[in-house]
Amino acid sequence: MAKQFEELLPEHTDFINAQHLFFVGSAGAEGFVNVSPKGMDSLRILGPDRLIWLNLTGSGNETAAHVLENGRMTIMFCSFDKQPLILRVYGRTDVIHPRDDSWDELVDQFPDYLGARQIFDLDIELVQTSCGFGVPYYDFQGERDTLTNWASKKGEEGLQAYWTEKNQLSLDGKATGIR
């Protein structure tokens, strides 16, 4: 049932663009594996072999630590309506911070979210689709505004302090590169 592709095909791009939710998986050589759900308007496909996603401030920063260690990442999309399908994108990624030269060029592709802390630039090595027959139906009701409201209340200075306090080390004690 699973099929593999060297790059994103137009139908893969259409499928990804129709999803409201995706999952990011990463792991270091040792320690915890991280899987994070992502939403909002935070992913862009730049070509059949490249995509970027904007990482907003959260309680942890595991993905950044894993990427600094080995660059591996998997992004998974699931259809919760219509035709069942799971699409995984595997590759190597670079983490880009607001201090980096390419930040301004890439961040302009997203809404102006307060609390944007990194962009992950994924070089796609493999695309795999599978059936998704076991994925349940769910209805999209809308985006939550909780994260953007939280960031607004913190303000830029409060977010910087939060990054220093909560986002510099992973659960495994590995540096995230945020500072």
Rank of each mutant, 00 (worst) to 15 (best):
residue 4 Q to H: 14
residue 6 E to C: 02
residue 7 E to N: 12
residue 14 D to C: 03
residue 21 L to G: 05
residue 24 V to W: 00
residue 24 V to T: 13
residue 25 G to Y: 08
residue 25 G to R: 04
residue 30 E to S: 14
residue 30 E to C: 02
residue 32 F to N: 08
residue 33 V to S: 13
residue 34 N to Q: 10
residue 38 K to W: 07
residue 43 L to A: 05
residue 43 L to S: 06
residue 46 L to E: 12
residue 48 P to L: 00
residue 49 D to N: 14
residue 56 L to N: 01
residue 57 T to L: 14
residue 60 G to Q: 07
residue 60 G to W: 01
residue 60 G to T: 15
residue 61 N to P: 07
residue 61 N to A: 05
residue 70 N to H: 09
residue 71 G to I: 05
residue 76 M to H: 02
residue 79 S to I: 08
residue 80 F to R: 05
residue 81 D to W: 11
residue 81 D to Q: 15
residue 82 K to V: 08
residue 85 L to Q: 07
residue 86 I to W: 00
residue 86 I to C: 06
residue 87 L to Y: 06
residue 91 G to S: 02
residue 95 V to W: 00
residue 95 V to D: 01
residue 96 I to V: 15
residue 96 I to Q: 00
residue 103 W to P: 02
residue 107 V to E: 06
residue 108 D to Q: 14
residue 110 F to W: 13
residue 117 R to F: 06
residue 117 R to S: 02
residue 121 D to G: 00
residue 126 L to R: 15
residue 126 L to Y: 08
residue 131 C to D: 11
residue 131 C to A: 14
residue 132 G to W: 02
residue 133 F to L: 14
residue 142 G to Y: 10
residue 142 G to T: 10
residue 144 R to G: 07
residue 145 D to V: 10
residue 145 D to Y: 07
residue 147 L to T: 15
residue 148 T to D: 11
residue 156 E to F: 07
residue 162 Y to M: 04
residue 167 N to K: 00
residue 171 L to M: 10
residue 172 D to I: 10
residue 173 G to Y: 08
residue 179 R to G: 12
